[in-house]
């Protein structure tokens, strides 16, 4: 499952790739030309400190934000400028930063909204409750009243059940206790086993390096280093704390 990083992947078209993406909030330039590939069947971890532009990269990738320049390619096809909902309906599923759930909707209602991907509610419920039995007990509970970990499970379940080709995960660990984070990344590893390509964005680098095939570090709106998790781990401390 884990292709060697050194092996040439040139011939294969990555499922998701960003080419020279620049983006800005109003006047604030955030991305200064990001190049990133997510090859098929791999877990790519995008790491970096606060404000490096990780979340923005993901927003551009999933279509929520327009790039000022550059291209977004899905399976080799240019989808720059396509709206997020259209990409979502075509198998590019995103679990956004923080809590990817609708807090005022019940667990079941959250799954109802997930049916826009084209699946039947019954199928989605089956997958979701199968993966996270705790959600089944809580299906009538309002999502916002659940614990942070449970909310994140719901978000993941929603993403999984819609049978994606590519899964984009933004700061899965935000605001969660270490044990819960570990559990969630266990699930990520399982998902990766089934062949779904995953792009994980994570500020807390060590949690994610264990499951990643490829890691990249972002600094000041650019990808500064890319390589195997081991190679990247060595550079982390200096990137974060400037040690």
């Amino acid at each position: 499952m884990n292709p060697s990083i050194d092996a040439p992947v040139v011939e294969e078209i990555p499922l998701l790739s960003l080419r020279g993406v620049r983006a800005a909030y109003g006047n604030i330039d955030v991305l200064h030309g990001v190049d990133l590939d997510v090859p098929k069947g791999t877990v790519v971890a995008l790491l970096g400190p606060n404000g490096a532009g990780k979340s923005t990269t993901l927003k551009v990738a999933c279509g929520l934000m327009a790039a000022k320049a550059g291209k977004v390619l899905v399976a080799g096809r240019d989808v720059t400028g396509v709206r997020a909902e259209e990409l979502a309906r075509r198998g590019l599923v995103t679990i956004p930063e923080g809590k990817g759930v609708f807090p005022n909707l019940t667990v079941r209602e959250n799954l109802i909204v997930a049916t826009y991907g084209g699946q039947k509610l019954a199928d989605i419920e089956e997958v979701a409750y199968g993966r996270f039995p705790r959600l089944k007990e809580r299906r009538q509970q309002v999502a916002g009243t659940m614990s942070g970990g449970e909310q994140q499970m719901l978000a993941m379940a929603r993403g999984l059940a819609s049978n994606p080709a590519i899964l984009l995960l933004d700061e899965l660990s935000m605001g969660l206790a270490p044990l819960v984070v570990e559990e969630l990344y266990g699930v990520v590893a399982q998902i990766a086993q089934s062949g779904i390509s995953i792009l994980v964005i994570e500020q807390f680098a060590r949690t994610v390096l264990g499951v990643a095939d490829i890691a990249a570090i972002m600094l000041n709106g650019r990808v500064r280093a890319i390589g195997s998790p081991d190679e990247i781990e060595e550079e982390l401390s200096s990137a974060y704390l400037g040690g």
């Binding site: 270490p178 807390f204 680098a205 060590r206 704390l241 040690g243």
Partner: peptide
């Protein structure tokens, strides 16, 4: 601060 383990953990997460 640079030597502080708690800070390292807060920034890099986990272990």
């Amino acid at each position: 601060i640079q030597a502080n383990e708690v800070v390292q953990a807060a920034y890099l997460g986990g272990s």
